[in-house]
């Protein structure tokens, strides 16, 4: 999950990178700027994880200062207006790079932010407890009824329901009921 800022003067290159990154998994937010002043301003307000900076842009501050403005885990990838040798470091991309090369390098960086954030060990599987809650929801019980039957607080019921909805991508009660029937959690005759 990475926030990306593209700092690039060329309209064409900027648009190209935007369209490439829009379709890249793991990019949560994307901004682009061309003018050094705008770049500085956006850097401070937006605090990106990844800054794509064209090396030809003369920034009003030194490189060290620039790094200090960025947050601790942020990184800079330089965009070069010249071709790069085959073994170039991943922190450099070139306007001559092929789509595959660009995607490979950018995805590599973005994926590092994904792993950092994903420490919850998320699975799509419902826990036995969630299946039980789902069963009650599918049978048409209210949060309050479920809470008193299972000796838990309504707050806990709500939080389980949120997790169920997030895991299954199903929001409405009738949708959850259909899921419950399909998966044998309740029977068609029960409703």
């Amino acid at each position: 999950m990475a926030k990306v800022l593209i700092a690039e003067t060329s309209y064409l290159v900027r648009k190209g990178l935007v369209s490439l990154l829009e379709h890249t998994d793991g990019v949560t937010e994307l901004k682009a700027a061309g003018h050094p002043e705008t770049i500085m301003l956006t850097l401070k307000e937006y605090s990106p994880d990844i800054l794509l900076l064209n090396s030809a842009i003369t920034m009003p501050v030194t490189n060290e200062k620039l790094t200090s403005i960025l947050h601790e885990n942020a990184r800079i990838i330089y965009i070069l207006n010249t071709p790069l040798p085959a073994e170039s470091p991943s922190s450099q991309i070139s306007v001559f790079d092929t789509k595959n090369k660009l995607s490979e390098k950018l995805s590599f960086h973005i994926s590092q932010y994904a792993t950092q954030d994903n420490d919850k060990g998320e699975t799509e599987e419902l826990t036995p407890r969630e299946r039980l809650i789902l069963k009650h929801v599918a049978l048409g019980r209210t949060n309050k009824e479920i809470a008193s039957e299972l000796f838990i607080s309504t707050h806990t019921v709500i939080s389980h329901r949120k997790n169920i909805t997030r895991k299954l991508d199903i929001k409405t009660v009738s949708g959850l009921t259909v899921y419950a029937i399909l998966n044998g959690i309740i029977k068609m005759e029960d409703i």
Binding site: D169, K171, T172, S174, G175, Y179
Partner: peptide, 15 residues
């Protein structure tokens, strides 16, 4: 839209 999105997800993911 909610219910329609559910229908879509059920068809796509669970059926």
């Amino acid at each position: 839209e909610e219910k329609l999105v559910d229908l879509r997800n059920i068809l796509l993911k669970y059926l």
